[in-house]
Design a protein around this nucleic acid. Sequence first.
DNA 1: GCCAACGTTGGC
DNA 2: GCCAACGTTGGC
Length: 139
Amino acid sequence: MRYWLFKSEPSTWGWDDQLAKGESGEEWNGVRNYQARNFMREMEVGDLGFFYHSQDEKAVVGIVEVINPAHPDSTTDDPRWECVDIKAVKPVKTPVTLEQIKGDPRLAEMVLVRNSRLSVQPVTAEEWAIVCGLAGLGV
DNA sequence: GCCAACGTTGGC
DNA sequence: GCCAACGTTGGC
């Protein structure tokens, strides 16, 4: 069981859109980056992830679960690109902002801090627990 | 709106 | 296979 972080611009695909998909979830498509794709290939059904809003909000706003392993991205004919399907699990009680994450020395090594442009990122178990704590969620 | 960082593309 | 040019992303 591993942990991840999915980054999206809320104006394009936000937490509300993800929530509206309910249990059936949705493809995390449109990723055109090899690193991000490779992480998705490593994902297994049942893995959990943070849902992060970039741009104005810059905060973790929800928890999602991987419900289908990597498969071809339906938004392109290019066979290089794959994606997983995820569903919303629950919103955070308190959004965890990038500012908070940057301000916490325990989270200094998070990929979000080190390479903010990567749209799909791995999160360690330690980081997961810390961010869940900041979000007001029991671990 | 600007700028820095990064990834990708294409010419050689 | 290398490297310069270009485009995109995201934080400020």
